[in-house]
């Protein structure tokens, strides 16, 4: 009995210490975002501000491009998601439901594509986009991510578990194949679509690599790219607004995660399959 409570006590202590370590940058970010300037530059250790300085947020939202970055992030993330779904769902459906000769070829392509990390394709895509003159546009940020082998794989798994009769019934009822995809298959695949959307939105909201390459115009910067512009411009005394900006950029996904934890962990761990 004593041994048990002792072991519980020790593991509880270690887990809480670990959690404090995990939270440290979050706490520090929030704390600095709310600290008045004199407290930020004081040599004393104050984990929490003595009074809340909302002005940092006002500065970040009005005197910098942070709202623009958020806007760009939203456009890019939703653009990528919509196109991914439009391209991916019919293909996954065809891989399960159609008896085409090309099925094995397309599926082999999907498996091969799973092996290729995005970084590998960056140079040729950059070259091609430069040639076409579409660098520094939303298209440059959206187009490369439309083919998603992971998405095809995920939806294919889901569709292959649906009863075949349902699709046959839809055919007899007079639906064409494309209509079956969007009116029957997709609504029933909403759990898979949610997991995929969470995965896709998180990955592209947080991505820095490609925006760093494809965008040189600050007007088009996504949130991670934008906050680096902000940081590189400020001379070191705007720490408060910088942290406020970091907080604002992190907040949407963190809040979404806190509200829909189960779906988030499912979606993001499904991403473990992704090559």
């Amino acid at each position: 009995m004593i041994r048990r409570s002792l072991s519980r006590g020790v593991s509880l202590f270690l887990l809480i210490v670990g959690a404090m370590g995990i939270l440290l940058p979050f706490i520090w970010m929030v704390s600095l975002a709310f600290k008045p300037r004199d407290e930020i530059f004081s040599a004393d250790i104050d984990l929490l501000p003595t009074r809340l300085e909302w002005n940092n947020f006002v500065v970040a939202m009005t005197q910098t491009d942070v709202p623009l970055y958020l806007m760009n992030g939203l456009v890019v993330v939703l653009g990528i998601l919509v196109f991914q779904i439009l391209f991916t769902v019919p293909c996954a459906y065809a891989l399960v439901q159609r008896r085409t000769r090309w099925r094995t070829v397309v599926f082999a392509c999907v498996l091969a594509a799973l092996l290729v990390p995005f970084h590998v394709t960056a140079i040729p895509i950059f070259l091609g986009f430069a040639e076409m003159g579409i660098l520094n546009t939303y298209w440059a940020l959206i187009l490369p991510f439309i083919p998603t082998a992971f998405g095809i794989f995920l939806f294919r798994q889901f569709f292959s578990q649906m009863p075949k009769d349902l699709f046959d019934a839809a055919r007899v009822d007079g639906m064409g194949e494309m209509e079956i995809v969007w009116r029957v298959a997709f609504p029933l695949a909403l759990p898979a679509a949610t997991a995929f959307a969470i995965f896709s939105v998180t990955a592209h909201w947080n991505d820095l690599f490609w925006p760093l390459i494809a965008i040189t115009d600050p007007e088009l910067a996504t949130p991670p790219r934008g906050i680096l512009y902000f940081r590189d411009q400020e001379s070191g005394d705007d720490v408060g607004p910088l942290m406020a900006a970091a907080l604002i950029i992190t907040a949407p996904l963190v809040l979404a995660f806190l509200l829909a934890q189960r779906k988030f962990t499912q979606g993001l761990s499904a991403g473990g399959l992704k090559g």
């Binding site: 009863p163 009769d165 349902l166 046959d168 019934a169 839809a170 007899v172 029957v184 029933l188």
Partner: peptide
């Protein structure tokens, strides 16, 4: 033609 399936094949949504 109309068809009735053994599994009913109703659209669950």
């Amino acid at each position: 033609v109309a068809m009735v399936f053994q599994s009913y094949a109703l659209y669950p949504h």
